[in-house]
Design a protein around this nucleic acid. Structure first.
Lengths: 210, 210
DNA sequence: AGAATAGTGTCTGTGAGACAGTATGGT
DNA sequence: ACCATACTGTCTCACAGACACTATTCT
């Protein structure tokens, strides 16, 4: 935007930090909210996937590159959480870490190991805190909207939707209230879920105004 | 935390970005939510106060330093908002900007010029967006708790509290609902506000569990 | 027919919006 | 006495929790 600016030298006068991205990759598997971790080959401790920011790269691109290279994960849309800036948090030097969260479908963790987020995670660095932030952001999203991260393929039944929300919330939601709160944000397809026991359930899609 | 790590050279191999902090300093003056701006001496455009992060300094310390040096503001507790990372957003080079928000009492803007946030701000860089984020965070806070930023000196009347909340929300809140929602989070001092017209109002303090 | 799941109707409690009415000071 | 402001009581409406009841399929 600014046009009349010319003193590129001043920037180089400051020492600059390395900037890393670390990402909590969340998913729902077996009715449990899980985060993908990997074992650091050097320290042998569990941690979240991350990388250093390259020149000319956005933070979101760095996240996508780290997930592609370290876990074979493609096509995520990361969201920023927080910058961790404590001096001395990384023994290798001055490093700022920008924590991110990404959500993938159940089979999408690839080479990451799933860990249920209910456990005390025991991850390296401040990665436990990153998981906490990621989970609370996701829960706030799911409290308001039907499956905003699109974990569930459309069309789906209200029960299937509630089971995903149960897993994210970490508790059983009340079926009646859940249905009443979600129905205004869903659109009936007219089709029914066939093949199960009991009355067949109506199938829905998310309304575009999610 | 990690102990057995020795390869300090690898960090230096990457080009590193300059990291800046930019801060929306919010306050309430004349019943209006205002943000403190200053005129950039070089570009002559309005912008938020900011600075580059120094080595060994936390982001919060950089924010405090920038506010002290550029505006004479002391003793704020900044909160992080977002990292702006678009390559080319700063013509001087590769700069990440970590947006912050800080709240000061009515007289606390010092050398910054107050601008009501209802206006289309027209600030430099992405500073309009920073103000938007700062305001929505503050509004979310005030919707839940009585004057969480402690703009109002204790003790105060419910009416004075509501006027601050009115200013933050940018609209007149309903006196009845506001009183009923806030009273459980307030503690009566027993004193009364004397000297005004009409029935004297009870004085309250925030409960410690804010 | 009976089991199982989907979906509806309704009662109750809570809290917001609305507004009338009461209390208590100043002038 | 009157006015201005603080505060209370209450009606209505909307929505969550709870739960009984109906609907529709499979076995």
């Amino acid at each position: 935007m600014a046009a009349t600016d010319r003193k590129p030298k001043t920037l180089a006068h400051y020492p600059r930090p390395s900037v890393a991205v670390d990402t909590a990759v969340l998913t729902v598997a077996d009715g449990q909210l899980c985060v993908g971790v990997l074992r650091d080959p050097r320290s042998a401790r569990l941690r979240l996937p991350g990388t250093f920011l390259h020149e000319g790269e956005t933070l979101a691109d760095a996240v996508r590159r780290s997930l592609r290279e370290k876990a074979g994960i493609e096509g995520v849309e990361p969201a920023q959480l927080h910058v961790f800036d404590a001096p001395g948090r990384d023994s290798r030097g001055w490093v700022l870490s920008v924590a991110h969260v990404a959500v993938v479908p159940a089979t999408g963790l690839r080479e990451l190991q799933p860990r249920a987020v209910t456990e005390a995670m025991g991850l390296d660095f401040d990665h436990d805190e990153i998981v906490r932030l990621a989970v609370s952001l996701l829960r706030a999203d799911y409290a308001e909207h039907p499956d905003p991260a699109r974990l569930l393929p459309e069309p789906f039944t209200v029960t299937a939707l509630r089971e995903v929300h149960d897993a994210v919330a970490g508790e059983r939601l009340l079926p009646d209230s859940f249905r009443r709160r979600m129905l205004p944000m869903l659109r009936r397809t007219g089709e029914l879920q066939r093949g199960g026991v009991g009355k067949p359930a109506a199938l829905y899609r998310r309304t575009t105004t999610s």
